[in-house]
């Protein structure tokens, strides 16, 4: 659906269903440089299994008008505005990578609105290498290569894609090619600068699930330990063969973990 936030067009995928007040809502927040379609299989499942779905395109991504927002905090605020616009009082939030930091920050800022949070492919601090930042700042194609290659497990070029006939590297590169200049840098800089992770994690009162890729080259599972230890009601699932792009590399295992965490509780 298209909606206006702060006078700019915003988009959220709803799995072709109108939102119904009686249903639980699941909000999906994508990672750096990506969009709602990254959640294709998972968001569709929840939309067809009794939930309202809002898989957002952050400003400057996918179908949402730019410019991109500069900080994790401002992105979390923007997610809150989406919920306000749709009269959603509270929701489960599912975030990937940068989106996981946004979900964390949202739950810390608006504890009454976060029923539970699933943080996928997350680590803290989410530091980005100087070379990656520099390449992204210059809109150099090598930045897209870094995002693509480090964003998947090392065996990805040789492994079969669970989604028949699709080439994961090619798909990521094609998505990144659609980005406006500067958007990837904006996102990476926001992740790199985010310093409130431990403080925000300590404020989380709702259940939290960490879904981590055992072969993640960007956010290795050990880098999530500091956040996990700060959240009282937290649980972690490690999907061993997957890299950072868990929704594409291990779609079923990721979905199963989300189903148990979200639908198992409702």
């Amino acid at each position: 659906m298209n909606l206006a936030i702060d006078g700019r067009q915003a988009f959220a995928y709803t799995a072709a269903h109108a939102l119904e007040p009686a249903k639980h809502t699941v909000v999906f927040v994508h990672g750096a440089g990506l969009d709602h379609s990254w959640w294709g299989l998972q968001s569709r499942y929840f939309g067809y299994h009794g939930c309202n779905v809002l898989a957002v395109d952050l400003p400057g991504h996918g179908r949402s008008e730019g410019p991109p927002l500069p900080t994790i905090g401002s992105m979390a605020q923007w997610v809150g505005k989406i919920l306000d616009k749709e009269n959603v009082k509270s929701a489960a939030l599912v975030g990937h990578s940068m989106g996981a930091l946004i979900a964390l920050e949202f739950a810390a800022r608006y504890p009454e609105r976060a029923e539970r949070i699933a943080l996928i492919g997350v680590g803290y601090p989410m530091k980005v290498s100087a070379a990656f930042l520099e390449a992204a700042q210059k809109n150099d194609p090598s930045a897209y290569d870094m995002e693509t290659i480090w964003g998947h497990a090392p065996q990805t070029p040789f492994g079969g894609n669970p989604n028949p006939g699709m080439w994961m590297y090619g798909d990521t590169l094609a998505r990144l090619a659609r980005l406006a200049p500067g958007v990837l840098y904006n996102d990476l800089a926001a992740c790199n600068a985010y310093a409130a992770g431990l403080e925000s994690a300590a404020k989380i009162g709702c259940p939290a699930l960490f879904i981590l890729g055992g072969r993640d080259l960007m956010t290795a599972p050990r880098n999530a330990h500091s956040l996990i230890s700060k959240i009282k009601d937290s649980k972690a699932v490690e999907i061993r063969p997957s890299g950072h792009s868990l929704m594409a590399e291990a779609p079923d295992a990721t979905l199963d973990a989300l189903i148990e965490f979200i639908l198992g509780a409702s």
């Binding site: 299989l41 998972q42 569709r44 028949p164 006939g165 779609p251």
Partner: peptide
């Protein structure tokens, strides 16, 4: 309903054919 990845019927997709496609 395309909520999970996988094969249903070999007219639509097949694991051997999928290797060639990828």
């Amino acid at each position: 309903n395309m909520e999970r990845a996988g094969h249903v019927y070999s007219r639509i997709s097949n694991p051997t054919v999928a290797v060639l496609e990828e």
